[in-house]
């Protein structure tokens, strides 16, 4: 069996002071695995943006990360309000974040576009009133050395 490492995080929705903690922990773990630095960076950005999104829009959610020898999968699931128009939400700069959150420097409308840009596979499913699930895949180079 190929070795996998599964990380689970429960993202609190109401607490901005903790937003980004899961991404930081994930990044620390990645640095211990010997995954190349540029991949660590991309994976960390994907996770961070996703985590912040769940905090801002969905009152938190759950993150499951599966690190394998060939890829990293990040699955973010929330039970938030859902996204009525995904195509619109994917546009750079489009934001529904309230003013008080934007004044903190979040909600610039780059979250989802960045997650898509920095991942190799990006899948989003959302239903209004039910929630949103984002699945991102980041491929790892074949066994180096």
């Amino acid at each position: 069996m190929t070795e996998q490492l599964v990380l689970n995080y429960s993202i609190a929705g109401d607490d901005f002071t903790k937003a980004g903690e899961a991404a930081a922990d994930f990044k620390t773990v990645l640095k211990k695995t010997g995954v190349p630095p540029d991949i660590i960076r991309r994976a960390a950005i994907c996770m961070y943006e996703g985590e912040i999104n769940m905090v801002i829009h969905a009152d938190g959610g759950d993150a499951e990360i599966i690190i394998g020898a060939d890829k990293i999968e990040i699955i973010l699931a929330d039970r938030g309000p859902g996204i009525p128009d995904i195509e619109l939400a994917m546009q750079e700069g489009y934001t529904t974040a309230p003013e008080n959150i934007r004044s903190l420097g979040f909600g610039a409308g780059m979250g989802l576009p960045n997650m898509k840009r920095y991942s190799d596979g990006f899948d989003i499913k959302s239903a209004p009133g039910v929630g949103t699930t984002v699945k991102m895949t980041i491929m790892l180079p074949k066994n180096r050395e």
Partner: peptide
């Protein structure tokens, strides 16, 4: 130059195995 003193294993598979044991 990056000096990966925190890396746990020779390759990713080895490191993941160790991380699982550590957890």
């Amino acid at each position: 130059k990056y000096s990966p003193v925190w890396r746990l294993g020779e390759d990713t598979t080895d490191a993941l195995e160790k991380l699982n044991k550590i957890n």
